[in-house]
Nucleic acid binder design. Sequence first.
DNA 1: AACTGGGGCAACCGCTAGTAT
DNA 2: GATACTAGCGGTTGCCCCAGT
Length: 300
Amino acid sequence: MGRSPSNSQSDGLKRGPWTPEEDQKLIDYIQKHGQGNWQLLPRKAGLKRCGKSCRLRWTNYLRPDIKRGNFTPQEEQTIIHLHSALGNRWSAIAARLPGRTDNEIKNFWNTHLRKKLLRSGIDPRTHQLITDLSFPLNLPPVNSPMNPLENLAKIRLLSQILHVLNSNLFSSFLSGAETLNQFDCHVSGPLTPLQVPALVPNLESMNTHSDFPPVLDDSGMIGSTSDSIEEYSLRRLVQATPEISSGNLVHSVNLVENQDYDQLFVDSGACSGWGTAVDDEAGGSLWKDILDESFLASSL
DNA sequence: AACTGGGGCAACCGCTAGTAT
DNA sequence: GATACTAGCGGTTGCCCCAGT
């Protein structure tokens, strides 16, 4: 737990996990004298800790009014709602959740709620539907470690790219049509996230090009194309990701604002085209699945 | 049964804002 | 106004636990 497990400090101060004895000393001192000056407290209380460490231990763990245990669904909703309004201002969020500390809320957000939103196709930073490829692609700087959760959308896209590259569909194209003009159709206005899966069935289920949905241009409009097969496949994948739509975005935002998160998750998960993969558990196993799938397909 | 990898979370670090001198 | 000190905040780290192999 925590950093700097070593107890041997050049300044003579102990770091790392607190012992029950240290906790008791701190509790006893504060119960007798109140919080007062944190810099002086450790010396007066007989603790070999810095004041900062004492303050954190008290405010995050020992304070008598701290509520321990799991967050309730109500608290979850409150946190998500407040985060959409306040951002990463954990102390401000904690101030509205009696008995919860900023540290606890921050940890809960990073370990549970962020994943939950990502799985639902919602950018946890903006609380909006993930709508473009730049979302996952622009996140980690080159030298920073990848965050698999924030790159869920990227992973999903990669998975589907592999599907296309390995599919009968692709090989049938290699031997057949060079252009895709025959798939033109006319739909006015941008597609909504709920419309896209209807127009773009799961790639897995499409074995012939006759199943192909219409192609969308950069603005999300359906139009004609003379893309190469590769371009077409990639464009289709792009369109298979949650497409922004004023109508549906408003719907989702309303759900958030109305704290109807369960419905929001149901809605996003109900999108068969992208919801299925969104439902996948995030993490390293996803990469394994993707690679396994790719290997299997390529070995056929 | 032993090993391994990932998740959870307590604790630390660095920075900033506020206050005192 | 400049400096020093303190408290608070958000980001990050790394140990422990446990599920999966």
